[in-house]
């Protein structure tokens, strides 16, 4: 259950339905190409503070028209391991740096497709190298007053989140 401090819908152009749709299409499109994964989305929400419930995170620092943005992925390790073991054909240790490397690449691919779909809708986002970490080691935000769009989704039953942070 989310412990987010939920806020009302923000009138921010990056939180429009079309962006949410592009994000979901990017996530589903990438996972469909990586294998047979059951991907389901839950209703998105907005938050200024919330507690990430899963142990692995990935951060991409971006800009749009010189405004800083941040994308974060938060993963349940179980579906990540299923994806990675399918990709590389080897066992993956959930406590190792290999899982962080792998989730970084998975996020890279998902974000690449999101970026393309968003571009088709008129939203131009930059690209940056995903930085993966265990959630307990997530760095503090580089900028104050962040507002998040959070999209929960499950992959083969494992709960994950896509978080899109805009800074005022």
């Amino acid at each position: 259950m989310s412990t987010a401090l939920k806020i009302s819908t923000l009138k921010h152009p990056l939180f429009e339905k079309i962006v949410v749709d592009n994000i979901c299409a990017g996530i589903r499109g990438t996972l469909d190409q990586l294998g047979t994964f059951k991907t389901e989305f839950q209703p998105h929400f907005f938050a200024s503070e919330w507690t990430v419930p899963t142990p692995i995170s990935v951060v991409l620092n971006l800009k749009q028209n010189d405004h800083p943005l941040q994308v974060r992925f938060h993963f349940d390790p179980k579906p990540v391991i299923e994806i990675l073991e399918g990709m590389i054909g080897d066992k993956v240790d959930p406590e190792s740096q290999d899982i962080l490397d792998g989730v970084g690449e998975i996020s890279n691919m998902i974000y690449g497709l999101i970026k393309t779909k968003a571009s088709g809708s008129g939203f131009q986002f930059g690209m940056s190298r995903p930085e993966a970490c265990f959630t307990k080691n997530l760095p503090p935000s580089l900028h104050p007053n962040g507002q998040s769009l959070v999209i929960p989704f499950s992959v083969n039953g494992g709960i994950c989140h896509f978080e899109f942070i805009v800074f005022q």
Binding site: T30, Q33, N108, M109, Y111, G112, K115, M127
Partner: peptide, 27 residues
Amino acid sequence: VTAESEKEQIIEAAKAGVSEYVVKPFN
């Protein structure tokens, strides 16, 4: 071999002389 799949990136790579362009993920 890249996650970048926008037309502008593909054109830029072609202009630079890339032999082929593969979008991740691939099989």
